[in-house]
Design a protein around this nucleic acid. Structure first.
Length: 742
DNA sequence: CGGTTGTGTCATCAA
DNA sequence: AGTTGATGACACAAC
């Protein structure tokens, strides 16, 4: 029994590990097509692993444990994978093209090497630097990946150090393209796509090696930095080369001198005051709730505890809270103090700033509306058009209520997301070892082979089972069928039908001069002492499983009874065997049933009826035989049922794990996306600020941001329009997505 | 001694 | 209609 348990436990554990490991890399399709053909059927249709036949066959192996569960596990595993793919398809962020692009990038790590590797190099540097900087604050983080994640999150605000030399041409090209898109198109969608392209690159790298998550995550920051650098370079002295095409349409001339920071800041403030759409709010609620659930599930408890207990001054939260705060703050001087400079998009998130998260929060938070601290306040307005119509000066309801509502949620969500992601994804996905997986796979194959080996119907005895029972049963059942049948077939049928019917079973047992040889060898096939010694685990089995033996084996086991046994040992064995006998066996012996319970239970119906017809059995005997058969089969069925139940539970467990991992991945992707979006917004804001600040009216005076605003036209041109018009259009733009959602 | 676990058994349903 | 498998429920033994 203990060995059986151990075997079961270890097997399940190993297989669980295998599946979790495979879950990181394995492509379901390959399994479907090549390795496990039945799985296709299983996935496409009802699980064949749950069919009675298969289960039954598997169960008729040595013990059934460790073999069948694997097949079922695989079945459920792939079902889980399918479910997971569906979950992935949910696209909770409502991002068109997210899935396809992401998968493409995932599938082809080579293709993105040129574009992503340098970034990852940058990321490494930045992350390491950040790690050094923020080390004391993040002392609780233990694993490398966690650190990477955290650092990456820190990168949300902290841009990697300027290592522009590492940028490849592709990087610069990409940056350039994105830059132009930002400028030319001026629509939220482009920013959105860009952010996703960025995200895809990150995800790609991430998938390629979970251990490089820090690189991946920080890579984006590095890329953003690259863009930033590019922007800075272009916005420094001369007007950006990409700009004039659009700026040409501006109604007023654009002086080339730099603008006073005050004006820039006053412009930047409204820009950063992104309006939060109800959709975002709802999504964040959902995410928040899901995060709560995940917390409750205590998955990766230790990691979660560690991460959730991150110090309040953690750069992660600080970045999230600080960055949006400042823009919302409409005080020019304050804004200037926080942002430091409009041309420096990410100066706010420089490591120096991160070094003093608490100080920043203490200084900045009080200046900010109480609940307007969230990256969502800046991220929320995916519609850039709204971004370009700074509304705060008009003081419309949308301006105040809209962006502020989701802020507290956003802050919670972001922190929770970060924690969750780190604890979920890293704990589950890290440490995937292909070699180990292959070994496990081999193990699985061997096991499956075993199962196949023994997965024949009860009528055909498996070799493994034969070793355990049939070989010994050969002696016993042979004695039963040879000696017993020879003696019982005449005697039994005729002799004791009368008294056996009336006698109590036990009485009959004791009353009838029952040959010990019969009881010994007839029923328990493995009760030969020599055989028993070879099967020590059977000693722990309080019940016999002789019904597992195939009749053929029993039939083929017609060997003469071991007459050489000494009487003392015989008695001992008899006692032992009596204890080993099941109730039905006792009953059968009491009723002098002339064949083994194994036969009774495992023979096919035809053979069983044939066997019954051979003997002249009383009604009580026939009834008992049918009961024995029924109970025996039911016992097997119950065992199968229990194993199946256990497998189902285990599979559900694994499904939950997979879903949680997937959820963590999605959340991480969302963080990536939000980060990208925020960066893009900041960039757009700085550009807006710069362009607007360079505008002069006919008198050479700058336009007042309270009266005028820049607007991107659909054709990419930029117009200077009165703010009232801009607000109207912005409101119209906001209404659209709402209607679309309905 | 009570809770847990494993097992056998019965009743029942469905195929 | 009988057989068989699946499964919930229960009892019992072992731990």
């Amino acid at each position: 029994m203990l060995s059986l348990k151990k075997y079961l436990t270890e097997g399940l554990l190993q297989f669980t590990i295998l599946l979790s490991l495979i879950g990181v890399r394995v492509d379901v399709d390959t399994y479907l097509t090549s390795q496990l053909p039945p799985l296709r059927e299983i996935i496409l249709g009802p699980s064949s692993a749950y069919t009675q036949t298969q289960f039954h066959n598997l169960r008729n192996t040595l013990d059934g444990y460790g073999i069948h569960p694997k097949s079922i596990d695989l079945d459920n595993y792939f079902t889980a994978r399918r479910l997971l793919s569906q979950v992935r398809a949910l696209d909770r962020f409502q991002v068109p093209t997210t899935e396809v692009n992401a998968w493409l990038v995932h599938r082809d790590p080579e293709g993105s090497v040129s574009g992503s590797q340098p970034s990852s190099g940058l990321a490494l540097e930045s992350s390491s630097g950040l790690q050094d900087v923020t080390g004391p604050d993040n002392g609780v983080r233990e694993s490398e990946t966690e650190q990477g994640f955290s650092e990456d999150l820190e990168d949300l605000g902290a841009v990697a150090p300027p290592v522009s030399g590492d940028l490849t041409k592709e990087d610069i090209d990409l940056i350039d393209i994105l830059w132009r898109q930002d400028i030319d198109l001026g629509a939220g969608r482009e920013v959105f796509d860009y952010s996703h392209r960025q995200k895809e690159q990150d995800v790609d790298k991430e998938l390629r090696d979970g251990g490089e998550q820090a690189d991946t995550w920080a890579g984006e920051g590095a890329e953003a930095l690259a863009r930033d650098l590019l922007v800075d370079g272009e916005t420094g002295e001369s007007f950006p080369a990409q700009f004039p095409a659009n700026v040409a349409s501006i109604t007023e001339a654009v002086p080339s001198e730099s603008e006073p920071p005050a004006l820039q800041n006053s412009l930047l403030s409204p820009l950063l005051t992104g309006t939060e759409s109800p959709f975002d709010l709802e999504q964040q609620w959902q995410d928040l709730m899901s995060i709560m659930e995940m917390q409750a599930m205590e998955v990766n408890t230790s990691a979660s505890e560690i991460l959730y207990n991150a110090p309040p001054g953690d750069p992660l939260s600080t970045n999230y809270s600080l960055a949006p705060n400042t823009p919302i703050n409409q005080n020019v001087s304050l804004h200037q103090a926080s942002l430091g400079g409009c041309s420096q998009d990410f100066s706010l998130f420089s490591p120096e700033v991160e070094n003093l998260p608490v100080a920043n929060s203490s200084t900045l938070l009080p200046l900010v509306p109480s609940n307007s601290t969230s990256l969502n306040s800046t991220f929320s307005s995916t519609n850039l058009a709204g971004l370009f119509f700074p509304p705060q000066l008009n003081g419309t309801a949308n301006d105040t209520a809209g962006p502020e509502l989701p802020d507290p949620l956003g802050g919670l969500l972001d922190e929770a997301m970060l924690d969750e992601i780190s604890l979920m994804d890293l704990a589950i996905e890290e440490g995937f070892n292909p070699v180990e997986a292959s070994q496990l796979e081999e193990e699985f194959d061997s096991d499956s082979g075993l199962s196949l080996d023994s997965s024949h119907s009860p009528s055909s005895l498996s070799s493994s089972e034969g070793s355990s029972s049939s070989s010994s049963s050969s002696s016993s059942s042979s004695s039963a069928s040879s000696s017993a049948s020879s003696s019982f077939s005449e005697e039994g049928a005729v002799g004791y039908s009368s008294d056996s019917e009336t006698l109590d079973l036990e009485e009959a047992e004791g009353a009838v001069g029952y040959q010990p040889e019969y009881s010994k060898f007839c029923r328990m096939s493995y009760q030969d002492p020599s055989q028993l010694s070879c099967l020590p685990y059977l000693e722990h089995v309080g019940h016999n499983h002789t019904y597992n033996m195939a009749p053929s084996a029993l039939d083929s086991a017609d060997l003469p009874p071991p007459s050489t046994l000494k009487k003392g040992s015989k008695e001992k064995q008899a006692d032992f065997l009596d204890k080993q006998m099941s109730r039905d066996e006792h009953r059968a012996r009491a009723m002098k049933i002339p064949f083994t319970n194994d036969k009774i239970i495992n023979l096919p119906v035809e053979e069983f009826n044939e066997l019954l017809s051979k003997y002249q059995l009383s009604e009580a005997q026939l009834s008992l035989i049918r009961d024995i058969r029924r109970r025996g089969k039911n016992k097997m069925a119950a065992q199968n049922c229990r194993k199946r139940k256990l497998d189902t539970i285990l599979n559900l467990e694994r499904d939950v794990e997979d879903l949680q991992r997937d959820k963590a991945r999605l959340l991480r992707e969302k963080v990536e996306f939000l980060r990208s979006l925020r960066q893009m917004k900041q960039k757009v804001q700085s550009l807006y600020q710069e362009v607007f600040g360079r505008l002069r009216d006919e008198n050479g005076r700058p336009y007042s941001p309270s009266q005028y605003a820049l607007q991107y036209a659909g054709d990419g041109s930029v117009l200077l329009i009165p703010r009232t018009m801009a607000d109207q259009q912005a409101r119209r733009q906001e209404r659209k997505p709402k209607d679309r959602r309905k």
